[in-house]
Amino acid sequence: MRLIRRIPGANPLPFDPDETPIKRGDRLMMISADQKQLTFPMPQHPILFYVQNRKFAYETDVNSEPIAQACTVMAYYARTAKASSVIYSDCNGTVMASGSIVLIRKPNGNLVAKALHTRGGHPIADYKPFKVGASVSEADLSYSIAVGLDANVCDDVVAIERANE
């Protein structure tokens, strides 16, 4: 999705251009437009959107609520020359959480976009405490992974923007 023109007086949520290092135990926030099983119990009114001859469907609900949750960094892997940074956290990332924005608070108090949530544990482990490892059963495997919005990703976004001008 793209705006046709800038909105006067609106400031976009900034990325983290100086790539503030984070560590285990740091606080972050995940904002989701919609997640199954994390919204208020209301009557369900599902809406399906189909794209390309019914090959892809996006489901939402008219009663869905945006969700903001405070989380803790459980592990952080810094960006390399070939890969973006990765954050493991204890955020509850249920079905439809992919694409949720992960924010950190800078020392000056400003919130900045640090990462995008990409996946979590198996739905059977929703709401269970953070737990990972080779010996952890699928029923207990509970985590959220987010890919950093660092220079690697930002360079790709700028290239896409320029190609579409």
Rank of each mutant, 00 (worst) to 15 (best):
M1K: 14
R2M: 02
R2Y: 05
R2C: 03
R5W: 06
R6K: 14
R6G: 15
I7A: 08
P12R: 04
L13D: 09
F15Y: 12
F15A: 12
P17N: 09
P17Y: 08
E19P: 00
E19T: 00
T20F: 03
I22N: 00
I31K: 04
A33I: 11
D34L: 14
K36W: 04
K36I: 06
T39K: 01
F40R: 14
P41C: 04
P43S: 12
P43K: 12
I47K: 12
I47H: 09
F49D: 03
V51Q: 08
N53G: 15
E59P: 07
D61S: 06
D61Q: 04
V62A: 13
V62I: 15
S64M: 14
S64P: 06
C71R: 02
V73G: 11
M74N: 13
Y77L: 10
Y77V: 08
K82Y: 11
V86A: 04
N92L: 05
N92E: 08
N92I: 11
G93F: 05
S98Y: 07
I101R: 12
V102S: 05
P107W: 01
A113E: 04
T118A: 00
G121N: 03
G121C: 06
H122A: 07
I124W: 08
A125F: 00
D126H: 08
F130P: 04
G133L: 03
V136H: 09
S137W: 02
E138T: 15
A139S: 14
A139T: 12
D140F: 07
D140W: 02
L141T: 05
L141I: 07
S142Q: 09
S142W: 07
Y143L: 07
Y143C: 04
V147C: 00
G148W: 12
L149R: 05
D150R: 02
A151P: 01
N152Y: 14
V153S: 09
C154Q: 15
D156H: 10
V158K: 14
E161D: 14
